[in-house]
C-alpha cells in the first residue's frame, strides 16, 4: 500500500500535513491536547462525507458546485421532519433520499442530456439557495424535539455516531473504488468516456449515479451536522462547494478526471479543516486565513508539477 511511486501525490500531501502539524505543535503544544484533536475530528467528520462525494464527481471529470446549497436545504428539511415527529432511524433514510433526489436532478441533466456539470450545478446552486430563502425568509428551525440533538444518545454517544458514520462510509467507498467493477468504471469514464462506453460501461448511468450519490452524501452530512446543535439555521453551507473541491485537489486528484484516491481526499479534508484552528493556536491573525488557503491550493499545484517532472523522468529512465 505504501508504494511511493503509486501513491506519491497522497503521500506528499500527508507529509505536508505532518510538517504543518509539527510546526504548529512546536509553537503551541497545547494544539495536541486530546480535547482539541477530538473537536477537530468531530467538526470535520460531516464535511468528509461531502468531500468523498466530490472526489467521485471529480474522478468522473465533472464538478458539483451546488453542494453547499443542497446542504442548506437538507439541513432545514431535517429539522422540519424531526419537528413533525419522524423517528431517528427513519430520519436517516429520509435525509439520504431527499439528498439523492436533489443530486439526481443534477445527474439527470448532466448524465442524460450531457450538459456541462459546472453550468448545471451553478444553476442549481443559485436556485436551491434562493428557493430556500424564499420559503424560509431566513427563519431558523427552532423548538426541535428533545431527542434531536445527538439523536438522543447524549453528547459522547452522539459524537461517536457523527464520527463513526463518515469513517465507515470512507472505508467502504475507498475499498469499493479500488476493488469493485463499478468503482473502476468511474475511473474509466473519467479517463475516457468514449473508450469506457466501447468497453461496455454506460457513462450516462455512471454519471447519473455518481451525482445522485453525491446528493445522498450531502443529505447524510447535513443530518449529522445538524444534530450537533438544537437549532437549525437556514444559511448553512455557503462556500462549502469550493472548500470541497479544494480538499479533493489538495489531496492529489486531477480536476480533469480519472486520477485521484480517497485517502488523498482524507488528507485534504484534514489539511483544510485544521488551518483555521491552527492559526488561532499559533496566534496568526484570522485576516490571513483566506490568503493562506489560496496559497495551499497553489502550492498543491506546484507540488503536482514536481510529481509530473518526476514521472516523466522515471518514464524515460
Amino acid at each position: 500500500m505504501l508504494d511511493f511511486r503509486r501513491n506519491k501525490r497522497e503521500i506528499s500531501a500527508a507529509v505536508a500535513y505532518l510538517v504543518l502539524l509539527a510546526a504548529v505543535g512546536g509553537v503551541a503544544p497545547s494544539f495536541f491536547g486530546a480535547g482539541n484533536l477530538g473537536d477537530l475530528v468531530i467538526n470535520n467528520a460531516p464535511f468528509l462525507l461531502i468531500a468523498i462525494g466530490m472526489t467521485l464527481v471529480i474522478l468522473l471529470g465533472e464538478i458539483d458546485i451546488s453542494v453547499g446549497s443542497q446542504f442548506a436545504v437538507a439541513s432545514v428539511l431535517a429539522g422540519v421532519l424531526a419537528k413533525a415527529g419522524v423517528p431517528v432511524p427513519l430520519l436517516f433514510v429520509a435525509m439520504i433520499m431527499i439528498g439523492t433526489a436533489m443530486g439526481a436532478v443534477n445527474g439527470f441533466l448532466v448524465g442524460r442530456f450531457g450538459l456541462p456539470s459546472i453550468i448545471v450545478t451553478l444553476a442549481m446552486l443559485v436556485a436551491w439557495r434562493d428557493g430556500l430563502r424564499w420559503v424560509t425568509e431566513g427563519a431558523w428551525v427552532q423548538g426541535l424535539p428533545e431527542n434531536f440533538q445527538w439523536f438522543g444518545l447524549g453528547q459522547s454517544g452522539g459524537q461517536l455516531v457523527i464520527v463513526a458514520i463518515p469513517l465507515l462510509v470512507f472505508v467502504v467507498f475507498a475499498w469499493a473504488l479500488r476493488n469493485l467493477r463499478i468503482g473502476r468504471a468511474i475511473y474509466a469514464v473519467g479517463s475516457d468516456a468514449e473508450a469506457a462506453r466501447l468497453a461496455g460501461i454506460e457513462p450516462k448511468s455512471i454519471t447519473f449515479g455518481v451525482f445522485a450519490l453525491m446528493g445522498g452524501l450531502v443529505g447524510l452530512a447535513a443530518l449529522l451536522n445538524a444534530v450537533r446543535f438544537n437549532e437549525i439555521p437556514s444559511n448553512a453551507g455557503i462556500g462549502m462547494e469550493l472548500k470541497a473541491v479544494a480538499a479533493v485537489v489538495v489531496g492529489g486528484a486531477a480536476i480533469t478526471g480519472g486520477r485521484g484516491k480517497l485517502p488523498g481526499t482524507l488528507v485534504g479534508v484534514a489539511l483544510l479543516g485544521t488551518i483555521a484552528t491552527a492559526l488561532t493556536f499559533v496566534g496568526i491573525n484570522p485576516f490571513w486565513e483566506k490568503a493562506i488557503q489560496g496559497l495551499i491550493i497553489l502550492a498543491a499545484l506546484v507540488g503536482d508539477v514536481v510529481m509530473r517532472k518526476y514521472e516523466e523522468r522515471s518514464a524515460e529512465g
Partner: peptide, 24 residues
C-alpha cells in the same frame, strides 16, 4: 505549469481576497 484554469483561479480566488482582507 499547464494547469486547468478552474483550479488555478480557484486558488487565486482565495488568494486575492485573502490578501485584500489581510492588508486591511
Amino acid at each position: 505549469l499547464r494547469f486547468p484554469p478552474l483550479i488555478v483561479t480557484l486558488g487565486t480566488f482565495s488568494l486575492f481576497r485573502g490578501i485584500a482582507e489581510g492588508l486591511t
